[in-house]
């Protein structure tokens, strides 16, 4: 499965557009991480716990989007975009969406 935020893949023609596919997730870190992040706010620096949280969320939303793409029979997702929002304090919501397409060739 090819994932790209390009509109077109150089050298390969889009045979079929299969519409919008999306994946989203809301995740939170446990209290210990939240407390450490609070402490980090005093000293500054990277909040590793939350970076990890964003990575996990991004991977999960991507894999959900790919699952949708597979379900509709696509072999690539183009024009992928991410958006984040904070629904609840200390939780990250990550949303990925793109166009499921069938590309020519393998």
């Amino acid at each position: 499965m090819l994932v790209s935020n390009l509109e077109i893949v150089p050298g390969r023609r889009v045979l079929k557009h299969l519409g919008l596919v999306q994946g989203s997730t809301v995740r939170a870190k446990h209290v210990g991480r939240d407390l450490m992040a609070g402490l980090k706010n005093i000293f500054g620096g990277e909040l590793r716990g939350y970076t990890e949280l964003l990575n996990e969320s991004r991977e999960e939303s991507l894999s959900r989007m790919l699952e949708e793409a597979r379900a509709v029979g696509a072999n690539a997702v183009l024009n992928v975009r991410f958006s984040t929002s904070s629904v609840a304090q200390g939780a990250a919501e990550l949303f990925a969406y793109g166009t499921a397409v069938v590309l020519e060739g393998e």
């Binding site: 989203s24 809301v26 939170a28 446990h30 209290v31 939240d34 609840a88 304090q89 939780a91 919501e93």
Partner: peptide
């Protein structure tokens, strides 16, 4: 439930359907 989930961490399932519905 989301508040409790915030203590333990992990997937906040109760908000997923909310986002799905809204979208």
């Amino acid at each position: 439930v989301a508040g409790l989930r915030n203590i333990f961490g992990g997937r906040v399932r109760s908000y997923e359907s909310l986002l799905d519905r809204a979208r």
